[in-house]
Simulated assay, not measured.
Amino acid sequence: MPFDPTARPLTANEARVLATLMEKARTVPDSYPLTLNAVVTGCNQKTTRDPVMNLSDAEAQEALDSLKLLSMVFETSGGRAMRWEHNFQRAVGVPDQSAVLLGLLMLRGPQTAGELRINAERWHRFADISSVEAFLDELRERSAEKGGPLVVLLPRAPGAREPRWAHLLCGPVDLSAPAGGGAEPAAPALQARVEALEAEVAALRGTVQRLCAELGLPAGTPTGGG
């Protein structure tokens, strides 16, 4: 029977280990399957991870052993160290595109359909946002016979233009308390906007300094100063 998160939800450690294997299979295929050390390094990355975690070797190994019992990962022998690879699509019973979206949600936390499309670039190139939404809708409407829904659309956070999606692989999401993550998922977009504005200000400052030099004026003289 396909994986049912209501009967046996994944732990946070299991979700991080599983999604890391899913990511590295697509982004660094030459070094995949992964050794335990590579799994730990991938799980504890400081970028493209929400939340940032600090798993030990023992915690990652425990998660791998549990996922193996769920048929979501398996061991392969290669070189001197044992290596691991995921079996997500077959174990959960979802198409490749849906697996990409679930992997990203496990790694990066709740995201809008637009953010998922952008973040999926190295995993899979979706034609447009509507195609992302179509696969999300399929995951939300997954029948009980197939294990039930795997994603949920969160209430729109105050000030947000688009609602975010969250995965249900670790069990139900508390829809009554979105405030804890309300501002955080918007942070990357806000950060990008701030960086763009800073770059624009820097370019304008350079233009002003160049014009001042051409006109023989001291740069940075306050307006209206004597």
Score class of each variant (00 low, 15 high):
Ser131Trp: 09
Arg164Gln: 11
Ala160Glu: 15
Gln89Glu: 15
Val132His: 08
Thr207His: 09
Phe126Ala: 03
Leu105Phe: 06
Leu107Pro: 04
Ala144His: 05
Ala81Met: 07
His124Met: 08
Ala120Asn: 08
Met72Cys: 07
Ala177Thr: 13
Thr112Glu: 07
Ala192Ile: 03
Gly182His: 03
Trp165Ser: 03
Leu105Asn: 05
Pro158Asn: 07
Gly103Leu: 09
Gly159His: 07
Ala81Tyr: 10
Gln209Thr: 10
Arg156Ala: 08
Val132Gln: 08
Phe88Ala: 05
Ser176Gly: 11
Leu105Met: 10
Gly181Ile: 11
Gly93Phe: 00
Leu153Tyr: 00
Pro110Gly: 08
Val151Glu: 05
Leu190Pro: 00
Leu70Phe: 04
Gly79Tyr: 11
Ala134Ile: 01
Phe74Tyr: 15
Leu175Cys: 06
Val152Pro: 09
Pro178Lys: 06
Asp96Leu: 12
Pro95Tyr: 01
Gly109Met: 11
Glu198Asn: 14
Arg125Ala: 14
Ala157Ile: 03
Asp128Trp: 01
Arg161Asp: 13
Gly171Leu: 05
Leu116Phe: 06
Gly148Gln: 08
Ala183Trp: 12
Glu121Tyr: 09
Arg142Trp: 04
Arg117Gly: 03
Ala189Cys: 04
Gly78Pro: 02
Phe88Lys: 07
Pro185Thr: 12
Leu69Tyr: 02
Met72Glu: 05
Met72Lys: 08
Ala166Glu: 14
Val152Lys: 09
Leu197Thr: 05
Gln209Gly: 15
Pro163Ser: 15
Glu115Phe: 00
Glu195Met: 13
Ala134Trp: 10
Leu101Cys: 11
Glu85Tyr: 06
Pro158Gly: 06
Val151Tyr: 08
Pro163Ile: 05
Ala189Tyr: 00
Trp84Ile: 02
Met72Pro: 12
Ala113Arg: 04
Val194Arg: 13
Glu121Cys: 02
Arg161Cys: 04
Ala166Phe: 05
Ala99Tyr: 00
Glu115Pro: 02
Pro185Ala: 10
Ala196Phe: 01
Val201Gly: 01
Arg108Phe: 00
Ala203Val: 09
Thr76Ser: 09
Leu169Asn: 08
Ala134Met: 10
Val100Trp: 00
Cys170Gly: 15
Ala144Gly: 00
Leu69His: 06
Phe88Tyr: 14
Asp174Val: 11
His86Cys: 10
Thr76Glu: 13
Leu139Thr: 01
Met82Ile: 13
Glu133Trp: 00
Val94Asp: 01
Pro95Ile: 08
Ala177Gln: 15
Leu204Asn: 12
Ala81Thr: 11
Gln111Tyr: 00
Phe74Thr: 02
Ala183Ile: 10
Phe135Ile: 05
Ile129Met: 10
Leu102Thr: 10
Asp128Gln: 12
Leu102Trp: 01
Ala202His: 11
Ala99Val: 01
Ala91Trp: 02
Arg205Tyr: 02
Gly78His: 06
His167Pro: 03
Glu195Pro: 01
Trp165Gly: 05
Arg164Glu: 04
Glu198Lys: 13
Ala127Thr: 14
Val94His: 02
Ala189Asp: 14
Asn87Cys: 12
Pro188Gly: 07
Val94Gly: 08
Val92Leu: 04
Glu162Ala: 14
Val208Gln: 12
Leu190Asp: 04
Ala134Phe: 13
Glu198Pro: 01
Ser77Pro: 00
Phe126Tyr: 15
Leu153His: 01
Arg90Glu: 12
Ala113Tyr: 02
Phe135Lys: 11
